[in-house]
Amino acid sequence: MSDTVRLTCIECPTGCALTVLVEEGKAVSVEGYGCRRGRDYAIAEVDCPVRILTSTVAAQGLSVRMVPVRSSQPIPRGCLMDAMNAIRALTIDRPVRAGDVLVEDILGLGADIVATRDVERD
């Protein structure tokens, strides 16, 4: 049973209009992509949509109140809220550099939560 799905690529500001032929829940062909990232996005999106998670985490004794963070890899879209709940409990009380891992393998999804800003002590 095949289906045609229309998507907007979110990989870059261009937002190519993609047409994906889907069979049994998987992409069989992709049209309309301007680059390979778009093609890869379409394939992932019809199977299991994933997203980069970005947020902030409370700091203590540092030069900022909130440390911005991201997931090192995209995680399943349906897990975003659970991941948010997991990181909301954190407090960062030591200086960090952008890229430092704050939580390894969040919710076992294969992505770390890393800091995205260099933050010193207050």
Binding site: A58, A59, Q60, L62, R65
Partner: peptide
């Protein structure tokens, strides 16, 4: 007419 509903920063 309070401005914000919650403070999530622990540093205050």
């Amino acid at each position: 007419s309070e401005m914000v509903v919650e403070d999530r920063a622990n540093a205050r």
